[in-house]
């Protein structure tokens, strides 16, 4: 299943993170390829979310670095990291209340074009927007069509006009994932995308994850539902107390005594 022909897209090199006296991550290194799902496992407090925060630019590591291809991501703000092709979802979905589902996807489709981006995009800049230039209106019509196409792919066509305030939790997860896919990322970080979902929704999210992988995206997946994670992942990295304790194909890792020990230890606590 692993597509070894793909070069490494995302490189995490010796990343460490200290919070006061706590070593949340200790020299974690691994690579992720386009077209694979890399599961990131580990008991509670193993440092998974911290790792995602560091890759996506939310936090800066105390040592080490993250690279996308040849480009260093560490030190760049979240939106620059995203513009370079690394996007993420959150444990608690972040919704854009005040917008409809379709409008939220439109923002994702055009995300890199606001706020004095470079090169400047006349369609979405402040002045042409305020002056109501005809070109902008044409661009908006086209954008709407692209957003509807994204919604259709995710099976959300019927929700397009709903205010995001009205969504149920599972629908929020699906919308957030759709938004993330709409930015056409090279790397997608999913932080517990299955938690709080009913079985139908779990199936839908897994379908979208596989679709993303097949389109060549490197998907990094943190998930507490170990069964689902092992079923969808091509490769797994296991963290415990901030250190990598195992790495490899799901079947091998699942049988690793160190991994079982870490998880059972967690259960007993």
């Amino acid at each position: 299943m692993t597509v070894t022909a793909e070069p490494i897209t995302l490189t995490v090199s010796a990343v460490s993170m200290r919070f006061g006296g706590v070593q949340a991550l200790d020299e974690v290194s691994f690579g992720a390829r386009g077209g694979e799902v890399l599961g990131v496992m580990g008991p509670n407090g193993a440092g998974k979310t911290t790792l995602f925060n560091i890759i996506s630019g939310v936090q800066r590591p105390t040592a080490g670095s993250v690279q996308l291809g040849e480009v260093r991501l560490t030190g760049r703000p979240v939106d620059r990291v995203a513009a370079l092709g690394v996007t993420r979802t959150f444990q608690t979905p972040v919704m854009f209340w005040g917008l409809t589902v379709r409008e939220s996807v439109c923002i994702a489709l055009t995300a890199c074009e606001f706020g004095g981006s470079y090169p400047p995009r006349a369609d979405r800049a402040l002045l042409p927007s305020g002056l109501g230039m005809p070109a902008r209106r044409r661009a908006d019509t086209e954008l709407r069509a692209r957003a509807d196409a994204m919604l259709e792919r995710a099976g959300l066509t019927h929700m397009g006009d709903r205010p995001t305030e009205s969504l149920a939790f599972g629908e929020e997860r699906l919308l957030e994932l759709t938004r993330a896919l709409a930015v056409d990322p090279r790397v997608l970080l999913l932080d517990e995308p299955l938690s709080g979902l009913n079985p139908d929704e779990v199936g839908e999210v897994l379908r979208l994850i596989r679709g993303a992988r097949d389109s060549g995206i490197a998907v990094l997946l943190v998930e507490h539902a170990v069964g689902e994670l092992l079923s969808v992942a091509d490769r797994v990295v296991v963290l415990d107390y901030g250190r990598t304790i195992a790495e490899g194909p799901p079947a091998v890792v699942a049988a690793d005594p160190a991994v079982i020990d870490a998880y059972i230890g967690d259960e007993l606590e």
């Binding site: 996007t87 979802t89 854009f96 209340w97 923002i107 979405r124 109501g132 957030e176 993330a180």
Partner: peptide, 23 residues
């Protein structure tokens, strides 16, 4: 405009918008 909606997105969930690439 989409610009105005981007403002709303930032106001509602700034980190979420940034994670998509919104400056």
């Amino acid at each position: 405009s989409t610009y105005g909606r981007a403002l709303i997105a930032v106001s509602a969930g700034e980190l979420g918008a940034q994670a998509l690439g919104v400056n």
